[in-house]
Design a protein around this nucleic acid. Structure first.
Length: 435
RNA sequence: GGAACGGUGGCAGAGCGGACGAAUGCGACAGUCUUGAAAACUGUUGGGGGUUCACGCCUCCCGAGGGUUCGAAUCCCUCCCGUUCCGCCA
């Protein structure tokens, strides 16, 4: 949520920022109109309420003096003003709601250094990494035996069973088997162990209240993307970002505890409503997947360092896994609605000859904190300020799984997994066909 | 799921229809005293919103939302959460 005061003080700055996302300035003018109308109504309502309070006190005074006649006259007068106040209150609340609902669908302002652009095509590739880069080896070429899509490799090795996954739950619900399932568990253990030095591990609920999923910006705009359990009015989380960012909802933290940093491995549920027909094969786009997430609450001053740390950790995991990847600085037209700045990490899939997004690291400024009302009391004792929130995947597993299976495929059809996973795989890093 | 009792400021805990944003205690902060500290004493000490150049003034917030009333922390209704007992259960 944007700061309504900025809207009053410098509407042009908001228009300019939103224009970089392709949002029309008329929406901002409408917001300003709502705000002006609301404040005018509020002022009148408060004046009336003041009168009611004064009259009520006078009633009490009159009764104490046993002047029943004056008391009932005053009560009558107060009732009349009160009735008017109640009528006006309906308008005030309608005006407040108009602002709130408009503000909830207004996206964040992109950061100054966020590159300008309209779409995915304008994202800026900032760097690439591949095994051997530091030793001077060129960007890798992938052999023919690696250019086999993971769903074929997976089915051949008996570690992926899409057909039976679909039998149980419909398409885009993969079933991993044997070493395939174990690999996912190993990846989670590997990542959580890597973050344990600075991030508290959490195991949050998977279903959350409407307020919780609204705070991060996933509602109301993207309701179609989330699974909703009608009977209990709960939402299946699309990412651990949702519960972790709402964890301190409505709280005032001490500056000394910041940055607060959390990591969690959770299932993530996405309806993928708008992507019918895209990536229908394999595990590149699925309705349920596991992901390890990093979330930080920081002061505005500490946000940059917290952001860099999350990005560095996601990259470190990829390097540890020996996966060729690139870093994208998302342009103003492609960052998420709540974000001010986002870097995506993409691994290369030789089987599909594509880059796969496996992590998205974002800085939200105070946008989410405003929605969730998470503040901190500055150490110097000033009034509470909104925190900045940040997060990043480290990492989303199915696409990592696919890249590992493809990049690691040997000429004989077996797959070699990275050595760093050995401790989590019971010492074996070779995947051969199940007899 | 049933029953009983509760949810008040950073914490503890009064208040049970009329000046209550809320006694009191603790904590925290500042000052006096002290070489310094402790103790003692004095003062300050929640959040949102509106208005004002500012000092300030006004308004809302006592789990949440409705209602009754001239007036609600106090009465009524619904919901949520906690504790205890019963039932059920991985």
């Amino acid at each position: 949520m944007l700061d309504i005061r900025l809207l009053r003080d410098d509407p042009d700055a908001i228009k300019a920022g939103l224009a970089r996302r392709g949002v029309d300035g008329a929406a901002v003018d409408r917001l300003i109109d709502f705000d002006v109308a609301h404040r005018a109504l509020l002022a009148r309502q408060e004046t009336l309420r003041q009168e009611v309070k004064a009259l009520s006190k006078a009633v009490g005074q009159a009764k104490k003096e046993r002047d029943e006649v004056r008391a009932s006259a005053l009560a009558e007068q107060s009732r009349a003003v009160g009735d008017e106040e109640r009528r006006l209150n309906v308008d005030v609340e309608a005006a407040a709601e108009a602002i709130r609902s408009a503000l909830l669908v207004t996206p964040n302002l992109p950061a100054e250094d966020c590159p300008d652009g309209e779409s995915e095509a304008d994202n800026v590739e900032t760097r690439r990494w591949w095994p051997g880069l530091e030793q001077g080896f060129p960007f890798p070429t992938f052999d023919e035996h690696q250019q086999v899509p993971h769903w074929e490799v997976g089915e051949a090795l008996g570690i992926l069973d899409l057909e039976r996954g679909a039998k149980m739950s419909g398409s885009m619900f993969p079933l991993f088997r044997g070493m395939g399932a174990r690999l996912l568990r190993a990846l989670t253990s590997y990542a959580l162990a890597a973050h344990a030095d600075a991030y508290e591990e959490l195991r949050p609920p998977t279903f959350v209240l409407t307020e919780t999923i609204t705070a991060t910006g996933h509602l109301p705009k993207f309701a179609d993307e989330a699974y909703h359990i009608e009977r209990d009015d709960l939402w299946a989380i699309p990412t651990a970002e949702v519960p972790l960012t709402s964890m301190h909802r409505g709280e005032i933290l001490e500056e000394a505890v910041l940055p607060l940093r959390f990591t969690a491995s959770t299932p993530c549920f996405r309806r993928e409503a708008g992507s019918a027909g895209r990536d229908t094969r394999g595990v590149l786009r699925v309705h349920e997947f596991d992901k390890v997430e990093l979330v930080a609450y920081a002061t505005p001053e500490g946000a940059k360092a917290a952001f860099d740390d999350i990005l560095a950790r996601a990259e470190a995991l990829l390097r540890g896994l020996g996966l060729t990847y690139r870093v994208l600085d998302l342009c103003s037209g492609d960052i998420g609605a709540s974000s001010k700045r986002t870097f995506d990490l993409e691994v290369y899939s030789p089987g599909c000859d594509r880059w796969l997004e496996v992590s998205s690291v974002s800085w939200f400024g105070d946008y989410q904190a405003r929605r969730a009302s998470v503040r901190y009391r500055p150490a110097d004792g000033g009034s509470p300020q909104f925190v900045h929130t940040l997060n990043g995947s480290a990492l989303a597993w199915p696409r990592i799984w696919a890249a590992l299976i493809e990049q690691g495929r040997q000429a004989d059809g077996s797959v070699e997994l990275p050595e760093v996973l050995a401790p989590f795989l019971g010492g074996t890093t070779t995947v051969t066909p199940r007899r």
